[in-house]
Design a protein around this nucleic acid. Sequence first.
DNA 1: TAAATACATGAACAACTGTTCATTTGTTCA
DNA 2: TGAACAAATGAACAGTTGTTCATGTATTTA
Lengths: 115, 115
Amino acid sequence: MQEKCERVDSKQTADLLQNIPDSDTITKMAAVFQALQSDTRLKILFLLRQKEMCVCELEQALDVTQSAVSHSLRTLRQLDLVRVRREGKFTIYYIADEHVRTLIEMCLEHVEEKA
Amino acid sequence: MQEKCERVDSKQTADLLQNIPDSDTITKMAAVFQALQSDTRLKILFLLRQKEMCVCELEQALDVTQSAVSHSLRTLRQLDLVRVRREGKFTIYYIADEHVRTLIEMCLEHVEEKA
DNA sequence: TAAATACATGAACAACTGTTCATTTGTTCA
DNA sequence: TGAACAAATGAACAGTTGTTCATGTATTTA
């Protein structure tokens, strides 16, 4: 590794790099944030935060097609941000765990602070 | 609002909708998550979490062009996820506040839990 | 003041995302 | 069993993003 500017200390940089999560973990994190980056999916999470809901309920609340809701839920489900339970002909979705709640709350606080 | 399925209670739905952040706030949150959704920007934050750094240092650590680092930092800066300080010819970047640290830590815990 | 260094910015292009449409799968109940 | 309802999925298209290239601006120092 060659120095780029006088502030760079290659040894220290290598050290700092060792203390960041591995590429695989970073990519998984990016996928989680990517899932949280859509208005529709955020609204879904804010709704589910209050009450578990079936796809129909979300569809009606959000004013997008059933297909769009379903696709969004799939993304959230695959990353374990929401979970599913079958109840007769309904598929009930709910927030997966406290991490997810904290994530959206931190972000909310962050943006509200600026307003 | 017309009922879509027997589980839907329009009144309650309207109520739940009132308790989610307004569209403007949702969009700002989406922008924040959007900024956190790139591998490069996440790596930048994990580096800055350990030590404030100038652009050169980040460029060397990340193995992408100076331009890419600069563009990434701009995105993070505009959302107040990182802040800047001028020091002579160097521009020093650092994590904006605790919300940002908590955000990436929650996400890290979430993805590490599954591994 | 001129050259070098540090950083920012605009354009452009490939890659990716979110939505809708059309269709399929699974469940209930008459 | 078959009609109706709930949900998932694949394709396709417009819109968006991240990167590099080329260039511009600001600061330092010789």
